[in-house]
């Protein structure tokens, strides 16, 4: 029976050594490059015609733009417009990575905690820097809940700080766990199909349904990541 975890194995495709640092192109790196290329192709070639009445492809490209712009406007407001390029890139990158990972024989790099954790840390550090840039030292009042007696504050401030520090962890674990669990589940059901013979039709049907479900999860997790980024941005810009 195929090992359901084997699909997450990192394999070196091209050996690259930069002054003692192992910078080899792995399957994860290759799929990141492919993700960037496919997002760029999707948007650039979609908007190539710049038709007033968009065709199907152009309307998909416009739809994804408007979707993220709407999220940013609803959750952050007009001040969030500045950060649109970053948030849009984040959404498209994660969404396309999840989708590409669903292709047969593909590698899902969002199923690696280090990838999602770095993405979450970029958001976390970026948002913290923005908070300090907008409010200066006043940003620290974010950790002091208003209307609380000062005795309780001794307890509340550490709790707020821990809650703030837990953001990148919950953000990264959520994406990682969803992608990993989905892919393992699909693999486990797939490995039952052939050994069961004619009865294998049952796990096969389940797997077909799971592919549809995973498509939903691929979008939903990219969406959740983006929404939470917007909410954190909102906290940093408006302080609650």
């Amino acid at each position: 029976m195929a090992n359901p975890i084997e699909q997450f194995e990192i394999k070196t495709l091209v050996d690259i050594n930069l002054g003692g640092i192992d910078a080899s192109l792995t399957n994860a790196g290759a799929f990141m490059v492919m993700t960037v290329i496919s997002v760029t192709m999707f948007l650039v070639m979609g908007m190539n015609k710049r038709a007033l009445v968009p065709g199907r492809w152009q309307s998909m490209a416009e739809l994804s733009y408007e979707f993220v712009a709407g999220l940013l406007k609803d959750n952050v407001g007009a001040e969030g417009r500045k950060y649109f390029p970053f948030v849009f890139t984040l959404f498209m990158f994660i969404f396309f990575a999840n989708l590409l990972g669903l292709m047969p024989y593909a590698f899902t790099f969002t199923s690696h905690i280090i990838v999602t954790f770095v993405l979450a840390m970029v958001v976390f550090i970026g948002v913290t820097v923005i908070g300090f840039a907008v409010h200066g030292m006043k940003f620290l009042t974010f950790f002091v809940p208003s209307g609380v007696p000062s005795v309780v504050l001794i307890l509340m401030v550490p709790i707020e700080i821990i809650s703030y520090l837990s953001r990148p962890i919950s953000l990264s674990v959520r994406l990682f766990a969803n992608m990993t669990a989905g892919h393992i589940l699909m693999k486990v059901f797939a490995s039952f199909i052939l050994p069961l013979g004619i009865l294998g039709i049952a796990p096969f049907v389940v797997d077909v349904a799971l592919v549809g479900f995973e498509l939903l999860v691929a979008f939903l997790q990219a969406y959740v990541f983006t929404v939470l980024t917007c909410l954190y941005l909102n906290d940093a810009i408006h302080l609650h």
Binding site: I162, S166, I169, S170, V173, R174, A177, V224
Partner: peptide
């Protein structure tokens, strides 16, 4: 989502 929110703060 809620479960992860609970666990991550505990971990930190």
């Amino acid at each position: 989502r809620i479960g992860i929110d609970l666990i991550s703060a505990l971990l930190v």
